[in-house]
Design a protein around this nucleic acid. Structure first.
Lengths: 151, 151
DNA sequence: TGGTATTAGTTGAAAATGTAACTATCAACG
DNA sequence: CGTTGATAGTTACATTTTCAACTAATACCA
């Protein structure tokens, strides 16, 4: 017994055209490619390096800021911050005006790790971009930023 | 004490230009948006949905085929297949020529679920695409397919 | 033959993630 | 004040994913 065979009419639409699917696969393929390119030198998860990157690139901020900028859930960020604190890549500073907040600051070691990863990332991104024209790259990134709904 | 402030020179590069990052965020945002439109209905995970879709769209195939086509790890597929079997959306048929393989076939109920999801997906994708021009959509999808390294 | 290497798929344990409830702090308003 | 409601962040628990072994079947090759 077989399932009904695929029809070629309009009732189907190709999975390879479905944006959420394409985005997930492309994200998975490129991320794991990048991860192996630096051989997970620092033993960080992707969420941890996302936090590290935000602090390194955009300066000290609170967990809440990172959630908003990276569109990442607060529990994920909370755990990443704990992990980075344990490896001494960042310190917390309670805001004395409003003690619900804590400003997150990279330590010198954290900053060094960020710089190293930053180099790898730039290199990796350049290699990815090389397969497209300048116009394609511009359009691709613009569409992605819009889909990601980044601030 | 503060971490070194962000510099604006070439030593940094913007996270919002980093493809793996953008792809992951965009994938997460769009997928969770889509998931809310079907999750409650069938209680499927994304991997299960992926398997269902492959069988519905491209016809019966083995788990190995799905792994290759969707660039998904075999343990993920294996567990998704078990789950779909338990909900009676698919059946396995041992290949008698080479008994390592089993061909996966949607049941009529599985096929019905696929068709329903297919409609939702097409609808959702149309809404996403509507924010871009035809040219942008073409370029976006072409780049994504290439990055995803799809067969 | 028979021994070794591959391949399809499964499983168990550890890690990561998602969800919801929780603490602690502050703001608004009577 | 004091109560209510919002916000920042954590934690507990369930689900999912990952990684490394594992079984079973086949291929290769001396």
């Amino acid at each position: 017994m077989r399932a009904p065979p695929p029809e070629d009419d309009d009732a189907h639409f190709d999975l390879k055209d479905f944006l959420p699917y394409l985005l997930n696969i492309a994200g998975e393929v490129t991320s794991s490619g990048f991860q192996s390119s630096y051989k997970n030198q620092y033993g960080m998860t992707r969420t941890e390096w996302r936090v590290l990157f935000h602090l390194g690139r955009y300066g000290d901020m609170t967990a809440r800021d990172i959630c908003a900028r990276a569109r990442t859930h607060k529990t994920k960020v909370s755990r990443a911050v704990s992990a980075l604190e344990k490896t001494r890549f960042l310190k917390r500073h309670k805001d004395l005006e409003d003690r619900r907040f804590e400003t997150l600051c990279l330590t010198p070691e954290g900053y060094k790790a960020y710089k190293a990863l930053c180099d790898k990332a730039r290199q990796f991104d350049r290699a990815l971009s090389a397969q497209f024209t300048a116009e394609e790259n511009a359009i691709l990134r613009r569409c992605l930023r819009q889909l990601a709904d980044l601030p």
